[in-house]
Design a protein around this nucleic acid. Structure first.
Lengths: 181, 181
DNA sequence: TGACAATCGTTAGGAAACTAATAGTTAGGT
DNA sequence: ACCTAACTATTAGTTTCCTAACGATTGTCA
Protein backbone atom coordinates (compact mmCIF):
# COMPACT_ATOMS: atom_id res chain seq x y z
CA UNK A 1 0.00 0.00 0.00
CA UNK A 2 2.38 2.75 -1.07
CA UNK A 3 -0.11 5.56 -1.50
CA UNK A 4 -3.63 6.52 -2.47
CA UNK A 5 -2.73 9.08 -5.11
CA UNK A 6 -0.68 8.54 -8.24
CA UNK A 7 2.37 10.43 -7.12
CA UNK A 8 6.01 10.30 -7.70
CA UNK A 9 6.86 7.32 -5.58
CA UNK A 10 10.37 8.64 -5.16
CA UNK A 11 11.04 12.33 -4.85
CA UNK A 12 13.79 13.31 -7.32
CA UNK A 13 17.18 14.23 -5.93
CA UNK A 14 17.75 17.90 -5.37
CA UNK A 15 20.41 18.27 -8.05
CA UNK A 16 18.00 16.75 -10.58
CA UNK A 17 15.51 19.45 -9.72
CA UNK A 18 18.18 22.10 -10.13
CA UNK A 19 18.91 20.79 -13.59
CA UNK A 20 15.18 20.74 -14.34
CA UNK A 21 14.97 24.38 -13.35
CA UNK A 22 17.26 25.25 -16.26
CA UNK A 23 14.51 24.05 -18.58
CA UNK A 24 11.61 25.68 -16.79
CA UNK A 25 12.25 29.19 -15.49
CA UNK A 26 9.11 29.01 -13.33
CA UNK A 27 10.41 26.04 -11.35
CA UNK A 28 11.76 26.91 -7.90
CA UNK A 29 13.83 23.85 -6.98
CA UNK A 30 13.80 24.26 -3.21
CA UNK A 31 10.05 24.90 -3.21
CA UNK A 32 9.48 21.89 -5.42
CA UNK A 33 11.66 19.72 -3.23
CA UNK A 34 9.79 20.70 -0.07
CA UNK A 35 6.42 20.48 -1.84
CA UNK A 36 7.03 16.95 -3.06
CA UNK A 37 8.24 15.85 0.36
CA UNK A 38 5.17 17.28 2.00
CA UNK A 39 2.89 15.61 -0.51
CA UNK A 40 4.65 12.29 -0.26
CA UNK A 41 4.87 12.27 3.52
CA UNK A 42 1.23 13.19 3.83
CA UNK A 43 0.12 10.55 1.39
CA UNK A 44 2.19 7.82 3.00
CA UNK A 45 1.18 8.77 6.50
CA UNK A 46 -2.48 8.66 5.59
CA UNK A 47 -2.00 5.22 4.05
CA UNK A 48 0.00 3.87 6.93
CA UNK A 49 -2.51 5.14 9.45
CA UNK A 50 -5.29 3.45 7.50
CA UNK A 51 -3.34 0.21 7.34
CA UNK A 52 -2.55 0.24 11.04
CA UNK A 53 -6.16 0.87 12.00
CA UNK A 54 -7.15 -1.92 9.65
CA UNK A 55 -4.99 -4.29 11.67
CA UNK A 56 -6.81 -3.11 14.77
CA UNK A 57 -10.13 -4.00 13.17
CA UNK A 58 -11.38 -0.54 12.34
CA UNK A 59 -11.05 2.22 9.73
CA UNK A 60 -9.88 5.79 9.72
CA UNK A 61 -13.28 7.39 9.43
CA UNK A 62 -15.00 5.21 11.97
CA UNK A 63 -12.17 5.29 14.48
CA UNK A 64 -11.89 9.06 14.43
CA UNK A 65 -15.59 9.22 15.11
CA UNK A 66 -15.20 6.84 18.05
CA UNK A 67 -12.37 8.95 19.46
CA UNK A 68 -14.54 12.03 19.34
CA UNK A 69 -17.50 10.26 20.89
CA UNK A 70 -15.24 8.95 23.64
CA UNK A 71 -14.05 12.45 24.26
CA UNK A 72 -17.53 13.91 24.40
CA UNK A 73 -18.37 11.43 27.13
CA UNK A 74 -21.96 12.10 28.22
CA UNK A 75 -22.69 15.07 25.99
CA UNK A 76 -24.23 13.09 23.11
CA UNK A 77 -23.42 15.21 20.06
CA UNK A 78 -25.82 15.39 17.13
CA UNK A 79 -24.77 14.02 13.74
CA UNK A 80 -24.35 17.53 12.40
CA UNK A 81 -21.94 18.35 15.26
CA UNK A 82 -19.84 15.37 14.26
CA UNK A 83 -19.77 16.56 10.67
CA UNK A 84 -18.74 20.01 11.86
CA UNK A 85 -15.87 18.91 14.06
CA UNK A 86 -14.51 16.18 11.81
CA UNK A 87 -14.73 18.28 8.68
CA UNK A 88 -16.71 15.87 6.51
CA UNK A 89 -20.22 16.21 5.15
CA UNK A 90 -23.33 15.09 6.97
CA UNK A 91 -23.89 12.48 4.29
CA UNK A 92 -20.55 10.91 5.14
CA UNK A 93 -21.44 10.86 8.83
CA UNK A 94 -24.62 8.97 7.99
CA UNK A 95 -22.59 6.27 6.28
CA UNK A 96 -20.04 6.01 9.08
CA UNK A 97 -22.76 5.76 11.71
CA UNK A 98 -24.49 3.04 9.70
CA UNK A 99 -21.33 0.95 9.90
CA UNK A 100 -20.64 1.66 13.56
CA UNK A 101 -24.22 0.96 14.52
CA UNK A 102 -24.25 -2.32 12.64
CA UNK A 103 -21.16 -3.34 14.63
CA UNK A 104 -22.95 -2.34 17.82
CA UNK A 105 -20.35 0.25 18.82
CA UNK A 106 -22.63 3.25 18.61
CA UNK A 107 -26.26 4.10 19.18
CA UNK A 108 -28.56 6.66 17.58
CA UNK A 109 -31.10 8.34 19.83
CA UNK A 110 -33.85 10.81 19.06
CA UNK A 111 -33.64 14.20 20.66
CA UNK A 112 -36.96 14.80 22.46
CA UNK A 113 -36.75 18.58 22.17
CA UNK A 114 -35.82 18.81 18.47
CA UNK A 115 -37.04 15.98 16.32
CA UNK A 116 -34.74 16.85 13.42
CA UNK A 117 -31.69 15.84 15.46
CA UNK A 118 -30.17 12.41 15.84
CA UNK A 119 -27.91 12.22 18.86
CA UNK A 120 -25.12 9.69 18.93
CA UNK A 121 -23.54 7.87 21.85
CA UNK A 122 -21.14 4.99 22.46
CA UNK A 123 -22.60 1.67 23.51
CA UNK A 124 -20.85 -0.23 26.31
CA UNK A 125 -19.31 -2.33 23.59
CA UNK A 126 -18.07 0.79 21.85
CA UNK A 127 -16.48 2.04 25.04
CA UNK A 128 -14.80 -1.30 25.62
CA UNK A 129 -13.42 -1.28 22.10
CA UNK A 130 -12.10 2.22 22.53
CA UNK A 131 -10.49 1.40 25.88
CA UNK A 132 -8.73 -1.51 24.27
CA UNK A 133 -7.56 0.15 21.06
CA UNK A 134 -6.84 3.71 22.08
CA UNK A 135 -3.67 2.96 24.10
CA UNK A 136 -2.32 0.87 21.23
CA UNK A 137 -2.90 3.70 18.82
CA UNK A 138 -1.30 6.23 21.16
CA UNK A 139 1.78 4.10 21.57
CA UNK A 140 1.98 3.59 17.85
CA UNK A 141 2.26 7.22 16.83
CA UNK A 142 4.49 7.91 19.80
CA UNK A 143 6.88 5.45 18.17
CA UNK A 144 6.45 7.15 14.83
CA UNK A 145 7.76 10.42 16.24
CA UNK A 146 10.51 8.74 18.24
CA UNK A 147 13.34 9.74 15.88
CA UNK A 148 12.55 13.41 16.47
CA UNK A 149 13.81 15.03 19.66
CA UNK A 150 11.50 17.37 21.52
CA UNK A 151 12.80 20.61 19.97
CA UNK A 152 12.67 19.04 16.51
CA UNK A 153 9.02 18.15 16.98
CA UNK A 154 8.27 21.69 17.98
CA UNK A 155 10.16 23.03 15.00
CA UNK A 156 8.33 20.69 12.65
CA UNK A 157 4.98 21.87 13.95
CA UNK A 158 5.95 25.49 13.49
CA UNK A 159 7.02 24.90 9.92
CA UNK A 160 3.84 22.97 9.16
CA UNK A 161 1.75 25.74 10.65
CA UNK A 162 3.35 28.26 8.32
CA UNK A 163 2.49 26.06 5.36
CA UNK A 164 -1.04 25.59 6.65
CA UNK A 165 -1.54 29.30 6.93
CA UNK A 166 -0.35 29.86 3.39
CA UNK A 167 -2.65 27.08 2.21
CA UNK A 168 -5.49 29.07 3.73
CA UNK A 169 -4.44 32.10 1.72
CA UNK A 170 -4.19 30.17 -1.54
CA UNK A 171 -7.46 28.36 -0.91
CA UNK A 172 -9.27 31.62 -0.41
CA UNK A 173 -7.83 33.07 -3.60
CA UNK A 174 -8.87 29.96 -5.47
CA UNK A 175 -12.47 30.31 -4.36
CA UNK A 176 -12.64 34.02 -5.04
CA UNK A 177 -13.57 34.34 -8.70
CA UNK A 178 -10.87 36.89 -9.53
CA UNK A 179 -12.30 40.01 -7.98
CA UNK A 180 -9.48 42.32 -8.97
CA UNK A 181 -8.39 43.06 -12.50
CA UNK B 1 -13.39 21.13 0.65
CA UNK B 2 -11.53 20.86 3.93
CA UNK B 3 -10.28 17.29 3.63
CA UNK B 4 -10.93 13.83 2.31
CA UNK B 5 -10.66 11.99 5.58
CA UNK B 6 -12.79 12.49 8.67
CA UNK B 7 -10.13 14.10 10.80
CA UNK B 8 -10.02 16.54 13.54
CA UNK B 9 -10.57 19.68 11.55
CA UNK B 10 -8.76 21.65 14.21
CA UNK B 11 -5.79 20.22 16.02
CA UNK B 12 -6.27 20.66 19.79
CA UNK B 13 -4.11 23.17 21.58
CA UNK B 14 -0.97 21.80 23.14
CA UNK B 15 -2.05 22.40 26.72
CA UNK B 16 -5.25 20.46 26.04
CA UNK B 17 -3.15 17.51 24.96
CA UNK B 18 -1.05 17.82 28.10
CA UNK B 19 -4.19 17.64 30.18
CA UNK B 20 -5.36 14.66 28.15
CA UNK B 21 -2.09 12.90 28.90
CA UNK B 22 -3.04 12.88 32.57
CA UNK B 23 -5.93 10.60 31.68
CA UNK B 24 -4.04 8.33 29.30
CA UNK B 25 -0.53 7.40 30.39
CA UNK B 26 0.25 6.11 26.89
CA UNK B 27 -0.33 9.51 25.31
CA UNK B 28 2.83 11.44 24.44
CA UNK B 29 1.58 15.00 23.97
CA UNK B 30 4.40 16.30 21.81
CA UNK B 31 4.23 13.23 19.57
CA UNK B 32 0.48 13.58 19.29
CA UNK B 33 0.74 17.25 18.49
CA UNK B 34 3.26 16.64 15.71
CA UNK B 35 1.33 13.61 14.45
CA UNK B 36 -1.92 15.51 14.14
CA UNK B 37 -0.21 18.40 12.40
CA UNK B 38 1.39 16.05 9.92
CA UNK B 39 -1.89 14.30 9.25
CA UNK B 40 -3.83 17.51 8.88
CA UNK B 41 -1.27 19.25 6.69
CA UNK B 42 -1.01 16.22 4.45
CA UNK B 43 -4.74 15.87 4.11
CA UNK B 44 -5.29 19.55 3.39
CA UNK B 45 -2.43 19.75 0.95
CA UNK B 46 -3.74 16.79 -1.00
CA UNK B 47 -7.18 18.39 -1.14
CA UNK B 48 -5.89 21.80 -2.12
CA UNK B 49 -3.71 20.32 -4.83
CA UNK B 50 -6.71 18.45 -6.20
CA UNK B 51 -8.83 21.57 -6.13
CA UNK B 52 -6.20 23.68 -7.87
CA UNK B 53 -5.72 21.13 -10.61
CA UNK B 54 -9.50 20.99 -10.97
CA UNK B 55 -9.47 24.70 -11.75
CA UNK B 56 -6.87 24.01 -14.40
CA UNK B 57 -9.15 21.47 -16.01
CA UNK B 58 -7.42 18.31 -14.91
CA UNK B 59 -7.09 15.93 -11.94
CA UNK B 60 -4.32 14.80 -9.68
CA UNK B 61 -3.94 11.32 -11.12
CA UNK B 62 -4.12 12.35 -14.75
CA UNK B 63 -1.90 15.38 -14.36
CA UNK B 64 0.86 13.46 -12.60
CA UNK B 65 0.78 10.99 -15.43
CA UNK B 66 1.09 13.80 -17.97
CA UNK B 67 4.05 15.25 -16.08
CA UNK B 68 5.82 11.93 -16.20
CA UNK B 69 5.05 11.43 -19.88
CA UNK B 70 6.33 14.91 -20.59
CA UNK B 71 9.50 14.09 -18.74
CA UNK B 72 10.02 10.80 -20.55
CA UNK B 73 9.92 12.73 -23.82
CA UNK B 74 10.49 10.22 -26.64
CA UNK B 75 11.02 7.10 -24.56
CA UNK B 76 7.40 5.89 -24.62
CA UNK B 77 7.05 4.03 -21.32
CA UNK B 78 4.78 1.01 -21.03
CA UNK B 79 1.73 1.12 -18.79
CA UNK B 80 3.48 -1.09 -16.25
CA UNK B 81 6.38 1.38 -16.08
CA UNK B 82 3.93 4.13 -15.26
CA UNK B 83 2.41 2.03 -12.49
CA UNK B 84 5.88 1.35 -11.14
CA UNK B 85 7.07 4.95 -11.04
CA UNK B 86 3.82 6.52 -9.83
CA UNK B 87 3.23 3.87 -7.17
CA UNK B 88 -0.30 2.90 -8.14
CA UNK B 89 -1.62 -0.37 -9.51
CA UNK B 90 -1.76 -1.18 -13.19
CA UNK B 91 -5.54 -1.26 -12.94
CA UNK B 92 -5.51 2.38 -11.88
CA UNK B 93 -3.22 3.28 -14.78
CA UNK B 94 -5.70 1.69 -17.17
CA UNK B 95 -8.45 3.92 -15.85
CA UNK B 96 -6.33 7.06 -15.99
CA UNK B 97 -5.23 6.33 -19.54
CA UNK B 98 -8.86 5.77 -20.58
CA UNK B 99 -9.66 9.26 -19.41
CA UNK B 100 -6.61 10.89 -20.93
CA UNK B 101 -7.09 9.10 -24.22
CA UNK B 102 -10.74 10.12 -24.41
CA UNK B 103 -9.62 13.73 -24.00
CA UNK B 104 -7.09 13.24 -26.77
CA UNK B 105 -4.08 14.08 -24.61
CA UNK B 106 -2.45 10.69 -24.76
CA UNK B 107 -2.09 7.83 -27.22
CA UNK B 108 -1.70 4.09 -26.71
CA UNK B 109 0.56 2.25 -29.13
CA UNK B 110 1.33 -1.42 -29.47
CA UNK B 111 4.89 -2.50 -28.94
CA UNK B 112 5.94 -4.48 -32.04
CA UNK B 113 8.51 -6.58 -30.19
CA UNK B 114 6.38 -7.55 -27.18
CA UNK B 115 2.69 -7.70 -27.83
CA UNK B 116 1.80 -7.75 -24.14
CA UNK B 117 2.94 -4.17 -23.76
CA UNK B 118 1.01 -0.99 -24.36
CA UNK B 119 3.29 1.99 -24.80
CA UNK B 120 2.01 5.44 -24.02
CA UNK B 121 2.90 8.80 -25.50
CA UNK B 122 1.64 12.37 -25.43
CA UNK B 123 -0.31 13.61 -28.41
CA UNK B 124 0.49 17.10 -29.76
CA UNK B 125 -2.59 18.25 -27.91
CA UNK B 126 -1.28 16.67 -24.71
CA UNK B 127 2.04 18.46 -25.12
CA UNK B 128 0.31 21.75 -25.70
CA UNK B 129 -1.80 21.27 -22.61
CA UNK B 130 1.25 20.46 -20.55
CA UNK B 131 3.19 23.46 -21.86
CA UNK B 132 0.31 25.69 -20.90
CA UNK B 133 -0.43 24.26 -17.45
CA UNK B 134 2.96 23.24 -16.13
CA UNK B 135 4.31 26.78 -15.55
CA UNK B 136 1.11 27.73 -13.74
CA UNK B 137 1.44 24.72 -11.45
CA UNK B 138 5.12 25.44 -10.80
CA UNK B 139 4.38 29.03 -9.86
CA UNK B 140 1.54 27.91 -7.62
CA UNK B 141 3.52 25.67 -5.33
CA UNK B 142 6.40 28.14 -5.37
CA UNK B 143 3.95 30.56 -3.78
CA UNK B 144 2.86 27.91 -1.31
CA UNK B 145 6.39 27.63 0.04
CA UNK B 146 6.99 31.38 -0.04
CA UNK B 147 6.59 31.89 3.74
CA UNK B 148 9.50 29.53 4.35
CA UNK B 149 13.03 30.87 3.91
CA UNK B 150 15.58 28.70 2.18
CA UNK B 151 17.11 27.19 5.35
CA UNK B 152 13.64 26.52 6.74
CA UNK B 153 12.71 24.57 3.64
CA UNK B 154 15.81 22.49 3.98
CA UNK B 155 15.09 21.88 7.64
CA UNK B 156 11.52 20.88 6.89
CA UNK B 157 12.67 18.35 4.33
CA UNK B 158 15.17 16.86 6.77
CA UNK B 159 12.53 16.45 9.44
CA UNK B 160 10.08 14.92 6.98
CA UNK B 161 12.73 12.50 5.81
CA UNK B 162 13.26 11.29 9.35
CA UNK B 163 9.55 10.67 9.70
CA UNK B 164 9.46 8.90 6.35
CA UNK B 165 12.25 6.61 7.38
CA UNK B 166 10.48 5.69 10.59
CA UNK B 167 7.29 5.08 8.62
CA UNK B 168 9.24 2.56 6.63
CA UNK B 169 10.27 0.80 9.82
CA UNK B 170 6.74 0.70 11.20
CA UNK B 171 5.29 -0.40 7.88
CA UNK B 172 7.67 -3.32 7.71
CA UNK B 173 6.80 -4.40 11.24
CA UNK B 174 3.13 -4.18 10.40
CA UNK B 175 3.50 -6.50 7.44
CA UNK B 176 5.66 -9.00 9.30
CA UNK B 177 3.20 -11.37 10.98
CA UNK B 178 4.84 -11.25 14.41
CA UNK B 179 7.85 -13.45 13.86
CA UNK B 180 9.22 -13.20 17.37
CA UNK B 181 7.45 -14.31 20.50
C1' DT C 1 -51.21 32.73 12.16
C1' DG C 2 -49.10 31.37 8.18
C1' DA C 3 -45.73 31.69 4.57
C1' DC C 4 -40.73 31.37 3.98
C1' DA C 5 -36.27 30.29 4.97
C1' DA C 6 -32.99 27.46 7.35
C1' DT C 7 -31.48 23.19 9.27
C1' DC C 8 -31.58 18.15 10.09
C1' DG C 9 -30.56 13.40 8.47
C1' DT C 10 -31.02 10.40 4.60
C1' DT C 11 -30.87 8.76 -0.12
C1' DA C 12 -29.05 8.44 -4.81
C1' DG C 13 -25.42 8.75 -7.89
C1' DG C 14 -20.51 10.04 -9.10
C1' DA C 15 -15.22 9.98 -8.64
C1' DA C 16 -10.86 7.75 -7.82
C1' DA C 17 -8.36 4.67 -5.69
C1' DC C 18 -8.05 -0.43 -4.48
C1' DT C 19 -8.17 -6.03 -4.94
C1' DA C 20 -9.06 -10.14 -7.45
C1' DA C 21 -9.81 -12.53 -11.48
C1' DT C 22 -9.46 -12.69 -16.56
C1' DA C 23 -7.39 -13.56 -21.39
C1' DG C 24 -3.38 -12.91 -24.08
C1' DT C 25 1.70 -13.16 -24.53
C1' DT C 26 6.50 -14.34 -23.46
C1' DA C 27 10.30 -16.96 -21.23
C1' DG C 28 12.35 -21.14 -18.97
C1' DG C 29 13.18 -25.92 -18.09
C1' DT C 30 13.09 -30.60 -19.33
C1' DA D 1 8.54 -29.06 -28.62
C1' DC D 2 5.78 -28.27 -24.96
C1' DC D 3 4.14 -27.35 -20.42
C1' DT D 4 4.45 -24.29 -16.87
C1' DA D 5 5.43 -20.06 -14.76
C1' DA D 6 5.60 -15.16 -15.08
C1' DC D 7 4.12 -11.04 -16.90
C1' DT D 8 0.85 -7.67 -19.57
C1' DA D 9 -3.32 -4.94 -19.61
C1' DT D 10 -8.01 -5.09 -18.79
C1' DT D 11 -12.49 -5.90 -16.49
C1' DA D 12 -15.54 -6.27 -12.54
C1' DG D 13 -16.71 -5.24 -8.02
C1' DT D 14 -15.59 -2.79 -3.38
C1' DT D 15 -14.48 1.23 -0.52
C1' DT D 16 -14.95 5.91 1.04
C1' DC D 17 -15.34 10.10 0.20
C1' DC D 18 -18.13 13.68 -2.39
C1' DT D 19 -22.44 16.68 -4.34
C1' DA D 20 -27.24 17.32 -5.05
C1' DA D 21 -31.79 16.63 -3.98
C1' DC D 22 -35.38 15.10 -0.79
C1' DG D 23 -38.98 15.09 3.10
C1' DA D 24 -39.38 16.41 7.80
C1' DT D 25 -38.93 19.75 11.29
C1' DT D 26 -37.97 24.28 13.37
C1' DG D 27 -37.38 29.35 13.56
C1' DT D 28 -38.58 34.05 11.78
C1' DC D 29 -41.35 37.76 10.83
C1' DA D 30 -44.87 40.13 8.37
Amino acid sequence: MPGQVPFLKDVPRYDVLRAEAQLYPELDPSACYAFLHLLKTGDQLLSLDAEFLGHLGTRQGRFNLLLILGHCAQKLPAAADLAECTGVTRATITGLLDGLEKDGLVERRDDPSDRRLVRVGLTPRGEAFLDRVRPVYFRWFARLLEPLAEPERQLLVELLQKVQQQMGVLAEELRQPAVLN
